[in-house]
Computed example of a mutant assay.
Amino acid sequence: MRLVVALGGNALLPRGKPLTPANQVEAVRGAMRILAPISMQENLVITHGNGPQVGMLATLTAQAGAEFAEPFDVLDAQTEGMIGYLIERELRELLPALRQVATLVTLVEVDPKDPAFEDPTKFIGPVFDKDTAEKLAADRGWVVKPDGDYWRRVVPSPVPSAVPGIHTVDALVESGCTVVCVGGGGVPVAWDQVARSYTGIEAVIDKDLATSLLAYQLSASLMVLATDVEGVYEGWGTPAQRLIKTAGPEYLRSGHFPAGSMGPKVTAAAEFAERSLNGEAVIGALGDLAAILDGTAGTRVSRQYSGVTYY
């Protein structure tokens, strides 16, 4: 079975912990202990987020002055390589020597006229109080928005339209290699018709939407969007909250889910289910991955389901 698993931010940095190398390695090691046995049984592709890491790099390079500030396509590539290295290193420690793992810095094509560039929404980097965030915005030309009780920088998050290197990923998967790719949503690029080449774009693509596109183009049987909750709740945080067991994509699209948390995952799961002939998307906890593969955990989304059922 072709299985694509997207690791959420908490698989790379637990909530409330600072972005130190030790904390990141510890989190990645724990995630790989779960994924290593799966990679021995299935054709596994791993994707991951990069929000905290790319935000920190952007902040550090900005401090050096405008002349030295790296563009976001380069920052995305740097974090994709760094996080992919940690994942591959820890995974290789747990797999037999002959089991192959490959990490790819992956281009992902976007439309430079995407409306997302007019209204940045992707949170990156650390949190600030309102006064600090507004001062940084004024000093550095950032756009900042409230994120819960704090404020954070936001950047454009255009919709991914193609993965130019998909045939390379497909060939590696077909050979039995575990592949780490489309990290942080991939490196955002646009095709220049005049120059006949790709141009880097200042953005951070949502990793769940990029994973959905990748899974579809790979004809994956199952796409798992791993997070730190059991699945999708209707009425989250209210006395009437219910954990969804199965849903058709049209049902999920009709719901109301927070744009900054579960919303992108719901959209990505619905898109994969709509595009795929027989594929299924699941949103659930990484620690429940074995049960997800058994069909007993997570919120499952497929065209075969009509309406909604609950646990």
Rank of each mutant, 00 (worst) to 15 (best):
I34V: 15
L86M: 14
G30N: 14
H256W: 05
G125A: 06
R99G: 00
G279Q: 09
E67F: 06
E230L: 07
G295E: 11
N278G: 13
L60E: 12
I201R: 12
A69G: 01
T178Y: 10
G81N: 00
A138K: 15
T246H: 13
P52Q: 13
M1L: 10
V204Q: 09
V182S: 00
A133W: 04
G65D: 03
Q304Y: 01
I87W: 02
T299W: 08
E271H: 13
L91E: 07
R2E: 07
D149K: 15
E202H: 14
F257Q: 06
K135C: 01
L35Q: 11
R29M: 02
G263S: 06
G200L: 13
E230G: 08
Y216M: 01
D114A: 05
R253I: 10
L136V: 02
V4C: 06
K130G: 01
V74K: 09
L104Q: 04
S221F: 01
F272G: 05
E42G: 01
V4A: 09
P21Y: 04
A69K: 15
L209W: 11
D192L: 05
N43L: 10
C177H: 04
T168Q: 12
P37G: 09
D139S: 09
D129Y: 05
H167S: 14
E90I: 03
L286D: 01
K207A: 10
R253E: 15
E26P: 00
R300Q: 04
E174G: 03
R253C: 04
P146D: 10
V179C: 09
C181I: 07
D114E: 11
R92N: 04
V110Y: 02
E88P: 00
R99I: 02
Q193L: 03
A11R: 04
A36R: 14
G248D: 04
V232N: 09
L91K: 06
I205N: 04
V4G: 11
P112M: 08
G9I: 11
A22S: 11
A171V: 02
L19P: 03
Q304I: 02
E271A: 12
R196P: 00
W142E: 10
R140E: 05
A195H: 01
R33M: 07
Q304H: 11
Y216E: 12
D76A: 15
R242P: 00
T246V: 08
N10G: 07
M56T: 12
T47F: 09
D129C: 07
L104H: 02
L60F: 01
A133I: 01
V301H: 08
R253P: 00
L289V: 13
E67H: 11
A138G: 13
H256C: 07
V194D: 08
H48E: 03
R153M: 07
A97T: 08
M1E: 12
Q78A: 15
A273R: 06
S212L: 09
T20S: 14
P14L: 03
C177M: 14
F272I: 04
